[in-house]
Design a protein around this nucleic acid. Structure first.
Length: 370
DNA sequence: CAAATTTGACCGCA
DNA sequence: TGCGGTCAAATTTG
């Protein structure tokens, strides 16, 4: 391993935590705003929602700070390609397997200019995803190493990020290769559910630049697995003495078991918003000790919000939230909040509402953005 | 002990 | 023929 995947996480942690704390303060302001509005306007839910949307908007658009950059300034270059020629970036010949490549230059020539802006190039009209299954029908080989199914070239895209990001899916590393003319090896990942759910998605990750670090992730195929909402877990426990920074955790069993994938940048974009909403809700309404929300109910992986597999990647998480049905979820949650809050202020038992409010948005509703 | 990672071997394609 | 992608045994990790 030539780079430390965890280092980039650690370097970001403080900033992320700061942002989360800031988010909580905003939630606090949200609550205060409700209080004040309620006193002034009585039961004017409509205008309250306006305030909520206003504040929420600011929350959603709060830049996620990663790697010393705000997320909306993060240069994420995305290319969707119909063939692999552009993906590998460097042609030519050279380094043999396992050998040290003293090579030159991390492919900077092909993409290095993609700084400080976002590009999304989507190729069109590829043929159907063609998976050549070169089964040796007459063969009884047990060892099928190198078994070549045909390069999964359709529906591939690359994403360059200054930090390794969690894309919300569970990946298992299955190989690493030194790539000719590349300073760093390329890591090969397949979906963890390749076998149990026949998910064909794979990705390659390679560090393509040192200073500043730049990682190129190339995705192949689409996820057919159903692990979206287990990818991260929102842990809520208002009674917990733990620091607020622990409100959000990521389920290592479901998503980030790959230690090299313990790189959470993007998920906070959505999770922080969710935490704000939940926190605001719990401040007013939760009296039950069992206020752990089922994480999968409201949790929308940012990847899903981005409709990553179906519509191609979005460059800004905030905009992706705005763009997709995720905001519908938020609206419903806010609406529910209002119901609860109003009931609470009129003497209703909030705990009951808390239970009732689990009339959740069906996961699939959120998920289907295709 | 199961799951994940490492790593050398194998294979298809250009 | 060599590069890149994948496999799978061995090893590590939790």
């Amino acid at each position: 391993m030539q780079w430390s995947w965890s280092e980039s996480v650690l370097s970001n942690k403080e900033r992320v935590m700061e942002e989360l704390i800031q988010g909580r303060e905003l939630a606090s302001q949200l609550s205060t705003a409700f209080d004040n509005r309620s006193l002034v306007n009585g039961d004017d839910g409509g205008s309250d929602e306006g305030i909520v949307n206003e504040i929420l908007g600011s929350v959603v658009n709060t830049p996620l700070i990663m790697n010393g950059k705000e997320s909306d300034q993060e240069f994420v270059s995305v290319q969707i390609q119909g063939n692999s020629s552009g993906v590998s970036g460097s042609g030519g010949s050279g380094v043999s397997d396992g050998g040290s490549d003293g090579g030159g230059g991390a492919d900077s020539s092909s993409w290095g200019a993609n700084h400080d802006h976002v590009t999304a190039i989507k190729s069109e009209d590829y043929p159907e995803e063609e998976i050549k299954i070169n089964c040796k029908s007459t063969s009884t080989f047990k060892d099928r190493r190198g078994y070549y199914k045909g390069r999964n070239t359709a529906h591939s895209w690359t994403k360059d990020t200054p930090a390794l990001i969690d894309d919300g899916h569970a990946w298992r590393k299955y190989g690493q290769k030194n790539i000719r003319n590349a300073k760093h090896p390329r890591n090969y990942f397949r979906c963890t559910h390749k076998f149990d759910q026949a998910c064909k998605a794979t990705k390659h990750v390679q560090q393509v630049q040192d200073h500043p670090p730049m990682f190129r992730t190339t995705y192949y195929g689409t996820h057919t697995c159903r692990d979206y909402f287990k990818t991260s877990e929102l842990v809520l426990d208002c009674t917990s003495p733990r620091d607020s920074s622990e409100f959000i955790s990521f389920d290592s069993a479901n998503c980030l078991t790959n230690k090299q994938e313990h790189l959470f940048s993007a998920p906070f974009a959505s999770s922080s918003v969710q935490e704000l909403i939940v926190k605001a809700t719990s401040d007013h309404t939760v009296t039950s000790h069992d206020n752990h929300w089922p994480s999968s109910d409201y949790l929308v992986s940012h990847v899903d919000l981005m409709a990553f597999e179906s519509s191609g990647p979005m460059s800004r998480f905030s905009s992706s939230i705005d763009q997709y049905d995720g905001d519908d979820v938020f609206s419903r949650m806010i609406a529910e909040y209002f119901d609860i809050y109003k009931s609470n202020s009129t003497g209703a038992n909030p705990a009951q509402h808390q239970v009732e409010k689990t009339s959740r948005v069906p996961v699939n509703e959120v998920q289907r953005v295709e």
